[in-house]
Design a protein around this nucleic acid. Structure first.
Lengths: 128, 128
DNA sequence: CGGAATCCGCGTAGATACTG
DNA sequence: CAGTATCTACGCGGATTCCG
């Protein structure tokens, strides 16, 4: 992790070109990552996504998909049928993001117990 | 990315053991990742961190450091000097997280221009 | 079916003042 | 120096209603 310092220096600059404050902050919201992984296996329709992602509201699914489309991660296709059919799929950029994000999620999965234990230990030590 | 499906299935379960909803939600806030990378080069003191991380308030630095300490990413050491000196450093777990998160940040850095272009394109196409 | 529009509560986070 | 305490506001996100 020696070469972590070079672009990490930009982390602390408040300017608009910091990749963390721009990109990571964007996908660090409540639903982006979940939607991202919901689409890795292929395209899906709006209501199908809504069913699979437990707890998401219509409003937030729409809004987050729009943001991801704006960033170029998701492509939206409308089929002129009756009733209308709308499919969402990852772009090449979106698949790249998913692949990178997967490292982090995978790590989180592997160390979930360890983190839980740390939380319990902390709470135990700091309770009245 | 064929093996992405196995733990990704847990992504859509709303329960408390979903590693994404727990860990990523925790470090996906406004400051955690920035603090994480602020500490990869070694321990640092409270006010030194505050100076390096542009824009963070005293309140949020304290609070986020507490949360990271609770999760076991950060170790806090108080030196009984006058005035008091407090050092923060990454634990082994914290360094592991930083290493995994680095994949994502590095990707974001590499594709920043591409994402910016997508945003401009989208805004251009959707303005009145 | 796939939204858009509106309303609104609650939590996050900023600013400020004070302290061991 | 490294916090804590309090107050406040803004925006995220949920619920609901309506529409092409």
């Amino acid at each position: 992790m020696a070469n972590i310092t070079s672009p990490a220096r930009r982390v602390f600059e408040q300017n608009e070109r910091c990749p963390i404050r721009n990109v990571v902050a964007q996908i660090g919201d409540k639903w982006s990552i979940l939607i991202l992984f919901a689409l890795v296996d292929g395209p899906d329709r709006f209501n199908a996504l809504k069913s699979r992602i437990k707890g998401i509201s219509q409003r937030m699914l729409t809004q987050t998909l729009r943001d991801m489309e704006r960033d170029g991660y998701v492509k939206r296709t409308v089929y002129a049928e009756v009733p209308v059919k709308v499919e969402y799929e990852l772009t090449e950029l979106g698949r790249g993001l998913a692949k990178s994000a997967w490292q982090l999620v995978s790590w989180a999965d592997d160390h979930f117990d360890e983190i839980s234990a740390a939380r319990t230990r902390y709470d135990e030590a700091n309770k009245q």
